[in-house]
Design a protein around this nucleic acid. Structure first.
Lengths: 209, 209
DNA sequence: TCTTTACGCTACGACCCGTAGCGTAACTTC
DNA sequence: GAAGTTACGCTACGGGTCGTAGCGTAAAGA
C-alpha cells in the first residue's frame, strides 16, 4: 500500500473518499500517457478524475508528489522470480524492469521526478520510499538466494555486504535505465544476457578484491 | 565547438552577436544554479544575460534546447587520462564524471532534459550529439588503448565490438548517474575503485561468453 | 440535532509563455 | 556614400497555469 499516513479511524467528520484517490491516480497516469510530464496540469488531472482542482491540492502538495504516487504503484509488480540460478533470476528481473520503463507513463515521469528531487529533499525521500527501495529489496533477495544456492560466498562483514548491495543495485538499475532512456535502445533478451554475464563475472572476482 | 550550423560568412545583414550567445549560455547556467530546472524561466535568463527575451527565441526554440546547449559545454572537460593501466584510467574517468554530476547546474538539468527527450525526438538527437556521444568516445578510446596495452583481447567482429562498447557505456554512465542522482550517495574513490574492479573483472570473463 | 471534516464550484491575482509590431543598429553590396 | 538586409531592444498582448480564498453543501461521528 501507499505510504500515506492514513488518518486514524477515530477521527470525526466526513472521511476522504478512497475512490477519489484511486480515480485521481488513474487520471494522472492517463494524463502522463497522453500529455507527458511537462504538459500535464493539475486542472487536466482534476477534470479527468471528475473531481475539483481544490481536492487535489488538499491531498498533494503539487505535481511532483502526485506523479510519484501515481507511478509508484506500477513498481509493485516487480518480483524476483526463482528460476533456479542467479543468472536466470537477474536476467528476468532486468527484463521486467525494462518492460516497466517501456511504458509511457513511467518513461516520461521517472526521470522528471528524479530531476526535481535534486532540489527537494522531501521529494527525494518520497521517491526513495515508494520506488527505489522497492527495487532495492530485489537485490537483497537475490543475494540471499544465491548464497543459499552456494552461487555467492557469504559475506562476513555486514557493513561491507551492504555497500556491495548498493553497488550492485546502482549498476543494475543504472545500466537498464541508461540503456532504455538515455541511449534509447531496446533492452531485449540479448542485451539482458550479455549484461548479466558481465555483472556476474564481475561479482565473482570482485569478492576477492 | 557547438553544433550550431554557423551561417555562412557570406551572408548579408547584421551578424548575430557571439558575445550575446556566450552571455545567454552563461546566464542559463547561473539561473540553473540559483533556481533549478523547473523554476528557470526564459525571462529570467534574458534579464541576467542583458538581452531581450525575443533574442532568446530567435536562437533557441525553447527552454529545453537552451539548457542542453548551456550544459553541453561542461562535458567538454571530460578526458580519458593515460595513467598506465585500464583500471586506473576507468577509475579516473568515473571520478571526473562524478565531479561533473556534483555541480548543481548539471544535476538539475541533465535528468530533466532527458525526461523531456522521451517525448521529443529532435531534443533526443540534440542531447545525443552534444552530450552523450561526447562521453561515449571515452569508452572507444579506453578500449583501444587497453587493447594496445594487451589488457583486453582484440575483438574480431566489428559489430560485436560495437555492441560491447554500448554495453560498457551504459553500465558506466548508468551506474555513476544512478549512484549520484538517484541513490544520492557520494561517488568517492572507494566506490570508484570497487566499481572498476567489478567492471573489469566482468569484462575479462564476458569476452569468453 | 450539533459538530466536524470533505467536497464542488467560482473567482481571483500572479506569473510565464510565445509572438507581433516597431524603431534602431550593424554589416554587406553596389 | 546609399540602399538593402538582418539582428536587436522594447513594448504590448492573448492565452494558459498556478495555488488560494470563500462559500454552500454533503457525509460522517457525538
Amino acid at each position: 500500500m501507499l505510504s500515506h499516513s492514513r488518518p486514524k479511524p477515530l477521527r470525526t467528520g466526513r472521511p476522504r473518499s478512497a475512490a477519489a484517490d484511486e480515480a485521481i491516480l488513474e487520471a494522472t497516469r492517463a494524463s502522463l500517457v497522453d500529455l507527458g510530464w511537462s504538459k500535464l496540469t493539475m486542472s487536466d488531472v482534476a477534470t479527468r478524475a471528475g473531481v475539483a482542482k481544490t481536492t487535489l491540492y488538499r491531498r498533494w502538495a503539487g505535481k511532483n508528489e502526485l506523479v510519484v504516487d501515481a507511478v509508484a504503484v506500477l513498481f509493485d509488480e516487480l518480483e524476483l522470480p526463482d528460476l533456479g540460478s542467479l543468472s536466470a533470476d537477474v536476467q528476468a528481473v532486468v527484463l521486467q524492469f525494462a518492460a516497466l520503463l517501456k511504458r509511457p507513463e513511467t518513461q516520461t515521469a521517472l526521470m522528471a521526478v528524479v530531476a526535481e528531487s535534486t532540489r527537494d529533499e522531501a521529494l527525494r525521500a518520497r521517491i526513495r520510499d515508494s520506488i527505489v527501495d522497492r527495487q532495492k529489496r530485489l537485490v537483497l533477495q537475490g543475494r540471499q538466494r544465491a548464497q543459499e544456492r552456494g552461487e555467492l560466498p557469504v559475506e562476513q562483514d555486514e557493513a561491507v555486504a551492504a555497500t556491495t548491495d548498493d553497488l550492485i543495485f546502482d549498476v543494475i538499475a543504472g545500466a537498464v535505465v541508461h540503456r532504455a532512456l538515455v541511449s534509447a535502445e531496446p533492452v531485449d533478451e540479448d542485451w539482458a544476457r550479455r549484461f548479466t554475464v558481465l555483472l556476474l563475472a564481475g561479482l565473482g572476482s570482485a569478492a576477492s578484491a
